[in-house]
Amino acid sequence: MNQSHVSISGLKFSYPDGTQAIRGVDLEIRHGERIGLAGENGSGKTTLCKHMNGLLSPSAGRILVDGREASSLGASEIAAKVGYLFQNPDHQLFCSTVREEVEFGLRNIGLGADEIGRRVARYLEMLGISHLAEHPPLALSLGLRRLVTVASVLAMEQELLILDEPIAWLDAKQKASVVGAIRQAGTEGRTTVVISHNMKLMAELTDRLIVMTGGSIRLDGKTKDILSDPAAMASVGLVSPPVTLLAESIKDALHFTRRIDTNEDFVSALRERMPGGGTRGTG
C-alpha cells in the first residue's frame, strides 16, 4: 500500500519572534518509506518534523497525516499515529523504573495491561536492556538513558516514526541495537524519518534523503545517489561517508560504475572489476 502518509503543501512557518523557519515546503511521504532528513542546525528540519506530530501549526500551507490535518488531532490521538524520538533523552525520563518509563506512553494511547506487558518485554529485549527493567532510568549513563527513550518510543508502534539523532551518544554495541530496532520497524511497514548529521547512518537506514537549507528543501532523492555525488554533497555542506570518498579517489583507476555509500557496495563494485574471484588479474 503505497498511499500518501504525509502530505505537505506550501508549508511556511515563522516563530512568534518573527524568524522564518520554513520558507515553503512541498513534500509527499508514502507509507513505508525510509526517509533521511539532513541539513545544518537551523535549516528547518526539526521544525518541519514538529509539524508532522502537531506540535507546531503552519503559518501558511497545509500538512496532512493520513489525510487529516496534523494539528487538529488531540495529544493522545496524534501520539498513537506519530512517534517522535527527541534528541535529548533527559527531556523525557521521569519514572522510578525503566519499565514504567516504557509503559507511560503505552498507557496514554489506551492499550490494555496484557498488550502493554508484551510490548515492554519485547522492546526492552530488542534494545538489550531487559536486565535494567527495574532500574531507575535517571541513574543510568547517558547511553543507557538514550536506549530507554528509544524503547519507550518504539514500543508505541506508531505508523509514522520520527527519530532525531537516534544514535547520538551511543557506543558501538548500543548503536547496533538501535539500528537493528529501527530496521525492524521498517520491515514491519512503518514509515521512518531519521534526522541525523551522520551520513553513515543515513546510508544504513534510509532509501530517500532530503536535505534542507535555510528553511527549504534543496535536495530530495535516493540516498545512494546523493551520498555518492560529491558535487551535490558539497553544495549543501555535507560530507559523504569515508567509503564513498575512498571510492571517489580510486574510481578512475578502477572504473567503478556503481554508486557506493556502504562497505558492501564497495566490495560488490570491486568484485565486478575483478573477474574470477579476485585473486589475480587486472580490472
Partner: peptide, 17 residues
C-alpha cells in the same frame, strides 16, 4: 526554555497537559 522543550517531548508520548 527547557521546560517548554520537555512539555513538547512528553506531549508526543500522549501527555495531555
Amino acid at each position: 526554555g527547557t521546560i517548554d522543550q520537555i512539555k513538547e517531548a512528553q506531549a508526543s508520548r500522549g501527555l495531555e497537559s
